[in-house]
Design a protein around this nucleic acid. Structure first.
Lengths: 241, 241
DNA sequence: TATCATCTATAGCAACGCTATATGAACTGC
DNA sequence: GCAGTTCATATAGCGTTGCTATAGATGATA
C-alpha cells in the first residue's frame, strides 16, 4: 500500500522487504507480506531475485553498502588508531540502528553461505590498520589485527543488540574497543611477560611490510620485491615465543 | 527410526531435534522430520513443548547445561587468569563442535527473546574473574570485565564458525583472548616509552636494518641476510614517504 | 469396576515458498 | 507500419510447513 507509484517493482520489493524486516522484531517475514506491501505479485519477486533468500541477500548487500559508506566517510584524521576507534563506533551504531539487518548480516553467518560480507568488512578494517602499521603503531600483522578487532566488534554489537534498549551500556563498547586497540598497538610500553620478546625488529618489519605493499616501490624489481616480502614475513611472524 | 524403543517420547523428541539441528547445515528443520525421526506424531510434540520454538529452546537449554558443565569442570588451577583462558578456549571449542546449536544460542539473540543464556554465561565468567579481582589481578570491575571478555569470545567464535573448517585459524582466538585478558589485568608492566615516536617507511627500514644487524636473526641464512640488508639499504636511502 | 487425568493418533486447516503457464509491454529488424 | 523476440507481470495452484480440533488409548486411583 505504501510503495505504489513511480518506482520500479524491483525497488519496491527491496524497500518493502527492508521495511518489513526492520520492523519484524525477529518474527519471520513472508513473501506474501512483501509482495503485497510492494503492490506486486509473487512471480515478480522470483523473476528479479530468484529466491526469497536472494531478495534478503540483496537487502543485506544494500545495507552493507550503506555501512561501508559510513565507514569510509570520516576517515582521514591523521591518527590511524583514532580512525579505527571511529570505525568501531560506527560499526556498533549501525548495528544498533538496524538490529534486524545486522543480525541477518553477522548473526547468521554460516560457513557455506556468506563469509563475503565478513571478508569485505575485514578488508575495510585492514586497510585502515595498514596506515597504523606504516606509522609503526602496530604490534601484529594488519590482517590479524583486523580480524581480531572485527571479531570483538561484532561480539560487542551483538551483545548490545541483545540487551533491552533502555539499559544498553555503551561503556561495554568503548572498553572493549580500547582494550583491543591497545593490545594491538605499540603504545603499550612493553607488553606481557610472554609478549616481551616482541622486539623493535618485529615492529619495524611489520611497518616496513605494510609500507612496501602500499607504495609500489620502484627500488626493487618485482621478483626481488616478492622475495623481500617473503623474508619480511618470515621475520615478522617468527619471534612470538 | 533411530529412537524407537525404551526412551519416553519427550526424550526422543529432544534427541531427534538435537540431531537434526546439528546436521542441518543451516537449512530449516521441520516438525515433521523431527516427529518422524522420534517415532511420534505431531500433537505429541505440541503437548510436551507447546511450540516448535519451545522444543528448540529445550534443546538449547540442554546444550547450554552441557556447556556450563564443561566450563565448571576444570576450574581450580590456582591462577585465575589462566582459568579464564581455559574458559575462553572451552567456549570456542563448544561453538566449533556444535556450530548449529551455538548459532541458535548466540547468533540469534534478540532483546525480547532470550538474554537469559547470555546472563548465565556472563555470571559464570564473572564468578571466575572475581577470584582474579580478589588476587589483585584485575584492573576493572569483574562484571564489566566479564561482559567485555564474553562479548569478544562470542565474536571470535562466530567468526571461526563462519570460516570453512579447513582454513580455521585458532590463532585469532588466542590472540584476541590474550589481548582482552591483558587489557583487564594489572599485569601490564610500566615500560620504556622511548621509541614511541611515529616512524615513516624510511625510519622503519633503518630501524629494521639496525636491529637485524644487531641481533643475528636465524630466520635468514647469511647470504640471504646480506642481500636483504642490501635491499633494505637501497630502500632506506631513497625515498621520503 | 468405574473414573479421571495423562498422553497419543487421525485428519485437516490456513499459511508458507515457489512455479507452470499465460498475458501484456517494449524493443528489434525489415 | 508490422512480425518476432525478449522482458516483466499476473492467474492459479502444487507440495510442504506449523499447528490444532477431536477423539481414542493408557495407567493410576477409588
Amino acid at each position: 500500500m505504501s510503495f505504489d507509484g513511480q518506482l520500479p517493482p524491483k525497488m519496491r520489493l527491496l524497500r518493502a522487504a527492508a521495511e518489513l524486516l526492520a520492523n519484524s522484531a525477529g518474527a519471520s517475514v513472508s513473501t506474501r507480506q512483501i509482495t503485497q506491501l510492494a503492490g506486486v505479485t509473487a512471480p515478480t519477486l522470483y523473476h528479479h531475485f530468484g529466491d526469497k533468500e536472494g531478495l534478503f541477500d540483496a537487502v543485506v548487500t544494500a545495507g552493507f553498502e550503506e555501512y561501508v559508506a559510513g565507514e569510509r566517510d570520516f576517515a582521514p584524521s591523521g591518527q590511524p588508531l583514532e580512525d579505527i576507534r571511529r570505525m568501531w563506533d560506527n560499526h556498533v551504531q549501525f548495528g544498533l540502528n538496524q538490529p534486524e539487518l545486522y543480525l541477518v548480516m553477522f548473526g547468521n553467518i554460516r560457513p557455506e553461505s556468506r563469509p563475503a560480507i565478513v571478508a569485505d568488512a575485514e578488508a575495510l578494517m585492514e586497510e585502515m590498520l595498514n596506515k597504523a602499521a606504516v606509522a609503526g603503531q602496530l604490534n601484529v600483522q594488519p590482517r590479524e589485527a583486523a580480524r581480531s578487532i572485527l571479531a570483538a566488534n561484532v561480539g560487542v554489537t551483538l551483545m548490545l543488540i541483545a540487551e533491552p534498549a533502555a539499559e544498553r551500556n555503551l561503556e561495554l563498547s568503548t572498553m572493549t574497543r580500547d582494550a583491543m586497540i591497545f593490545a594491538v598497538s605499540t603504545e603499550q610500553a612493553s607488553g606481557t611477560p610472554e609478549d616481551s620478546g616482541k622486539s623493535s625488529v618485529v615492529v619495524a618489519a611489520i611497518a616496513l611490510n605494510a609500507a612496501l605493499q602500499a607504495s609500489h616501490s620502484d627500488q626493487l624489481s618485482s621478483s626481488e620485491l616478492k622475495l623481500f616480502l617473503e623474508w619480511l614475513h618470515r621475520i615478522s611472524t617468527s619471534s612470538t615465543s
